[in-house]
């Protein structure tokens, strides 16, 4: 508090007036900050939405992509060549054109069971190409590799493989599940 006071004069004679001139000036100032400061930072938030990636299966003997080795006798290895067999399963990947993606699949083998406790081992053989008409020249694809979708946002995989049927294998129908995943 700042105070200015003017005290008046007491006159001995003459002037009867007795006046005390006081001027009180009050100026309160807060103990804290009177002047505030605000600083602002503005940032941009960006995102690029791309087409989701999807995989569908087709081909195979039933057109649904299921791989059927047919009937086999024991003591034989049956094989489906992914490059040449018309019964190879086809996996079609679609997504953003030109985008890279990673492919993983059941590896190194798939157990096939007859439901009675007997099993066979399927060893997959996968080839791939960005062109749907290039099964014959499609290159081998290892699980976990990174590939690039075509200019139309597609990639194709053909699945073949082999099953070694040992001597003494129990007769029956064996089946297993092979899975192929594309991610970006």
């Amino acid at each position: 508090m700042i105070v200015w006071t003017l005290k008046g004069l007491w006159l001995n004679k003459g002037l009867a007036a007795k006046g005390a001139l006081s001027l009180l000036l009050l100026w309160t100032s807060t103990a804290g900050i009177v002047y505030c400061q605000t600083k602002t930072s503005t940032v941009s938030v960006l995102a690029s939405v791309v087409q989701s990636i999807s995989v569908s299966s087709s081909g195979g003997a039933d057109g649904q992509g299921n791989l059927d080795f047919g009937i086999s006798v024991v003591n034989r290895t049956v094989t489906i060549n992914p490059n040449t067999s018309p019964n190879a399963s086809v996996f079609t990947v679609t997504g953003a054109a030109g985008h890279s993606f990673t492919v993983t699949y059941s590896n190194p083998s798939v157990i096939m069971s007859d439901g009675q406790g007997n099993t066979l081992t399927f060893i997959p053989s996968v080839v791939g190409s960005s062109s749907s008409s290039s099964q014959g020249t499609a290159a081998p694809v290892s699980s976990g590799v990174t590939l690039t979708l075509s200019s139309t946002g597609a990639y194709y995989f053909w699945l073949g493989g082999s099953i070694q049927v040992p001597n003494g294998q129990q007769e029956g129908t064996y089946s297993g599940t092979f899975s192929l995943t594309a991610t970006y």
């Binding site: 700042i2 100032s29 900050i33 400061q37 605000t38 600083k39 602002t40 930072s41 940032v43 941009s44 938030v45 960006l46 995102a47 690029s48 939405v49 791309v50 087409q51 989701s52 990636i53 997504g95 953003a96 985008h99 970006y184």
Partner: peptide, 26 residues
């Protein structure tokens, strides 16, 4: 009569952009 001068306030970002990059539908 008194006043206290304090340091100027500032906020500085390391980057001007928060970039999610490519995000897939779904």
């Amino acid at each position: 009569v008194q006043a206290k001068v304090i340091a100027a306030l500032s906020i500085t970002p390391t980057s001007a952009t928060l970039n999610f990059g490519e995000v897939a539908q779904g």
